[in-house]
Structure formats: C-alpha cells, structure tokens
Design a protein around this nucleic acid. Structure first.
Lengths: 199, 199
DNA sequence: TATTTCATACCGACCGGTCGGTATGATTGT
DNA sequence: ACAATCATACCGACCGGTCGGTATGAAATA
C-alpha cells in the first residue's frame, strides 16, 4: 500500500464488502459504505466511477482467489480422488469461516443473471472451473484412479454438487453440518466413479 | 375467480411475477406492476399490504407447485431409480419452459438469506424436500433397487446436485444443454448407488 | 533553499428523480 | 344505503451521482 490513495481505495473496498455481505448490494447505499470506510462521498467517486464498479472489483478478486485455492489443492494432492476429498475438507473450513460472507455469493449470481457486465465477469471464471474439473477427471482416468466415465458428465455432476452444497450452506447455515455433508457427498461420488471401489 | 376483486388480485400477481422475473424484485416498482396489470396503485394496496407480501405469495405458490410435481412423479414411478430419472427428464422441460422465469429462483434465495420472513417461507418447504428425498432413498433401499448407502447422505448429494444444476441452468442457460446434463448426472449418481449396477 | 506550480486526493452540500406507501373520494355491486 | 373495490393525487424519505472548491505534497523553477 504505497500511496495514500491506495489505502483509501482498499478501505472503501473492505467497507463495501462488509456492507454488501450484511445487507446486499441494492440495500447498501454509497453513503453507508463511505461512513463505514471513514471516507467522504467525494473520495468514493474519486476512486470508483460507479457503485457497480466496486462490486465488480470485489467479484473479480473473490473468483481469482477461489481459482487459486483450487489449483493449489490439486497441485498438492498425490492423485485425483485425494484432491477432490481435500476440496471437500476445505469446504468445511470455508463454511465455518465465511458464514456471513457467503450471501454475497448469492447476490453475485442473482445479479449475474440479469446484468451483462456482472454476467461476463462471473461466467468466464466459472467456465474455467468447469474445464478445470473436467481436466481433473480426465487426469484421474489417465492415472488409473477413476473409472472410464464421461469426463464432462462427471465434472458437471461434481460441480453441480459443489454449487448446490455452497448454496444450501448459504441459505440454511444452521440446518446441517454442511462441511461434513460435503465430505460425505464427495465420498459417495467417488464411490461411484472410483476404480475398484464398487462394492 | 368469482368476484371482481379476486380477478384483480390474480392480475396483480401475474404481473408481479412477470416483472420480478424480468427485472428482479428490487428493480421492479409497484407502479410498474400496476401498469402491467392494468390496475391502479390504490387497487394494489387494497389487495396487498406491502410489495413484499406479493413476493411471498408468489413464493408460496411456486414452492407448493414444485412439491406437488415431485410427489406426483414419485407416485407414478414403479421404483425409486425410475422416479429419479423421471425427475431429471422433467428438469429438461422445466429448463426449456421456464427460462426467463428461473431468475426469480435466485432472487428468492438471495432474499431468503437475509429477510427472515422470506427465509421462513422458503426453508420449511425446502426441509420437506430434503425429507422427501431421504424417504425416497430409504424406499429404494427397502425395495432392493438401491445399495445400502446412508439415506441422508445420498439424499443430500442428490439434492445438492439438483440445486446446482438448476442454478447453473439459470445463470448460464446457453452454456450447455442442461436438460441432457441433468439426465447424465442422475444416471451417474444412480450408477454409484444402484444395486447390481457397478461395473 | 525558497517558492511557485500543479496533479492527485479529498470534502460535503446539493440535485433530479424514484419509490413505497397513504389519504381521500369516486364507482360498483348488492 | 352501504360495503367492497378501485382511481388520483400526493407525501416524505432516500439514493446515486455531480460539482465547486480545498488540502496535500512532490516536482519544477529560481
């Protein structure tokens, strides 16, 4: 954080993230963000042309972060099933840590379905994730740890499960132990596709 | 639709549903709904105390409808795997038909995560769905068509998959043939849990 | 070094417009 | 007549974004 300006920028982003998480995008006014950041409205619009731009920058950071975490987990795993299980275990921590932060995820999606700018910002990382998982399944088949399933179909099923889990954990965080359920689900999934595991 | 009042009420609900689907809840003004319904603001607030109440009534209808459809499919199926596959096939049609209507689903969820009233209205049907699928898996095990998996875990995995699919189809409807993917995913799931199907 | 210059960072009052909801009275059906 | 139904006009709050102007501090000039 070299210059004074950059520090202010970061404060605005952090404040916006908190407000969005607490109240949602629409319900959060620019004035509120400014107050939370201890900054004037003038400063806000000096650093960002619109409220939406703040939102988009947060979105980009979040998705990039997620992508890096997934890639790191895969790289560290000794084989594909292990990598997938690690991801499920990580989900446990994510659910616990993020809690109040998760609803932004929904807000992102809800807006992405309508706002072309948001859509474009979310959809290309998302498609990379799909490709990423397809690649993982293919690698699993190649290394002999997975059955010869259709990689795309399996990746889709896995990704759907992951998305569904996150969503449920977001809406009903106290309804179940979602971290444990994530692990159970992935285990079940692996039992279906793993080599020499079928009973 | 006996009285004149009921007809107006329905027109307001239909108009609201369309507006919400097209623009989202927040972005839809009461005036817009009234115009679309060919009704005055006075009529609107005569039939509904607040805008949110309209939203909630739509939500209730939608969830009740979904529940009925699921129960009907299960009742007609000759065994559990067949029932699950039928649901996947139905998803195909739902995706094609609903298209523009699906984003309301996201709006529902997004609001449910924050608005206690909406949350309560969505969460109890949702928990019924979970119980419903758990019951199905148990029945499948009892009838011998499914392996002795943990019913709750399997139901969770299946429901997660379903939710994830709907969500992806909502956000990226042209990104893939979601109906086909739904069938493929369920098939994959069944291969994992079905009796005597493991290769 | 002392002074001028100037870009960047920031302030906060303000504007045009929108929105959810209300007040009041007309119309309709019984 | 009288209750249910609907229309019109209106209110007060709020919001995203603008704008004229001020502070800060580094580079240029003398």
């Amino acid at each position: 954080m070299r210059t004074r300006g950059e520090a202010t920028r970061e404060r605005i982003l952090a404040a916006a993230e908190e407000c969005f998480a607490r109240q949602g995008y629409e319900a959060t006014s620019v004035a509120e963000i400014c107050q939370q950041a201890g900054v004037s409205k003038g400063a806000f619009f000096h650093h960002f042309p619109t409220k939406q731009e703040v939102f988009l920058e947060l979105l980009e950071r979040w998705l990039a972060d997620l992508g890096e975490n997934l890639a790191a987990l895969r790289a560290r795993a000794r084989n594909v099933p292990e990598g997938l299980m690690w991801m499920a275990e990580t989900a446990q921590q994510v659910f616990e840590m993020a809690r109040g932060k998760l609803p932004i995820f929904l807000e992102f999606l809800s807006r992405a379905a309508r706002d072309p700018r948001v859509w474009q910002a979310s959809i290309s990382p998302y498609r990379r994730y799909r490709a990423f998982f397809t690649g993982m399944i293919e690698a699993g088949i190649a290394e002999g740890s997975l059955r010869r399933v259709d990689p795309e179909a399996a990746a889709n099923a896995f990704l759907s499960m992951a998305i569904g889990l996150v969503l449920q954990a977001t809406v009903d965080p106290d309804g179940a132990n979602w971290g444990a359920i994530a692990q159970e689900s992935v285990r079940l999934f692996l039992e279906g596709v793993q080599q020499g595991q079928a009973p």
